[in-house]
Amino acid sequence: MAAVTGTTWTCYDSSTMTSREIYGRTLAELGKTNDRIVGLSADLAKTTAIVHFADAFPDRFFNFGIAEQNMFGAAAGLAKAGLIPFASTMAIFACLRGGEQIRTDICYQNLPVKIIATHAGISFGHAGTTHHCTEDLAVMRSFANMTVIAPADGIETSKAVRACLDIEGPVYIRIGRGFEPPCYENENYDFIPGKAVEMHAGTDLTIICCGIAVLQSVQAAKTLLEQDGLSVRVLNMHTIKPIDKEAVLKAVQDTRRILTIEEHNVVGGLGDAVGSVIAESGKGCVFRKHGIQDEFSLIGYAEDLYAHYGLDANGIISHVRRMMGMEFEADENWEDD
C-alpha cells in the first residue's frame, strides 16, 4: 500500500484515492517499457504527481520553472525530435496560459503531446477563481486534432493515460485535485477513447456526465430507482472529443430525456457537445445542461461548492425530478406555452 505524505499529512491507500497519484505512478510504469516517453512540468512536478516519473527517469524529465508557454512550445519540439512528451500543470495554466502554444505548436502540427492537467473544474475551490478551471473542455474541444478526456476516477485515469499512447495526435486529460473518491471498483471494464460507458441502466431519462459527476450521477440513479421508481441511465462520457454520437442518439431514442452534468461552464463543454449531436439528429427530446451556469465560481472547499452548484447526488436528483415533469413539444405550434 502506497502512502503519500504532505508536510503535515499522510494519505494511506493512495492507490484508490487520488487520480493524480495514480497518473504519476502509471506514467512511471509506462516509462519502463517506452523509452521515448519524456516528462515535463512547470514548477508543479510534485503538485501534479509527475514527480514519480521524474524520480524514476531523471534524464527524461524537464522542469521548466514557472513558464508554461515555454514548456508547451518545448513539448512540441521534443515531439518533433521523435519523443512522446507528457506535460503536466494545473488545468487553467495549461489551457489558457499555454493555450496558443497548444493550439499552434502542438495541435496544428498534430504532434503526439499528452497533456495531463490537474486541479480542473472547481476542485481547488478554496484557492480562488485564478485557480478554478471551468473553461478547459470548451477551449480544448475547439482545437482541431485534439482528443479530450475527463476520467471519472483514478482507475479510469490510469486507463486513459495508457490509452493515449495509442492515439497518434495530441491528447488532453483533465483530472481534479486528487481527492476524488473512486467510482469504479476495479479495472475490469473496457476503456475505449470515444466510447461511453454505461454505468447504470435506465429507460426514463439518461444522464450523460464526465469526471467527478459520474460517481454522483450513479448514486443519484440508485436513489431515484429506490425512492421514485425511476429508471435512469447513466453514461460516463469520459471522452468529450470525439464524442460518442451513437451512445447519445441511442439514449435519445430510448429515454427521450437527456441531462448532462459537468464540472465546467455550461458554455462550450460536455453539454454543448451532446446538445449539438441531438440538434443535428433532428430528434426531439427534453434536454438540460447542468454545470456552472456561465459564472465565476464562489470561493470554498470543493465539497461545499459541489453541493452549492448541485453537482452532488442531491443536486442531480432534484434536476432529474424536475425534468420528469417536462415534455418536449412534438407539434409545430410555438405559441402554446
Partner: peptide, 16 residues
C-alpha cells in the same frame, strides 16, 4: 478564510 462564500481565498480577489 477559504470557507464557503468567503471573500478570502488562497489568492486575492479584488472584487471581494
Amino acid at each position: 478564510f477559504n470557507h464557503f462564500g468567503s471573500p478570502f481565498a488562497m489568492h486575492p480577489d479584488s472584487r471581494k
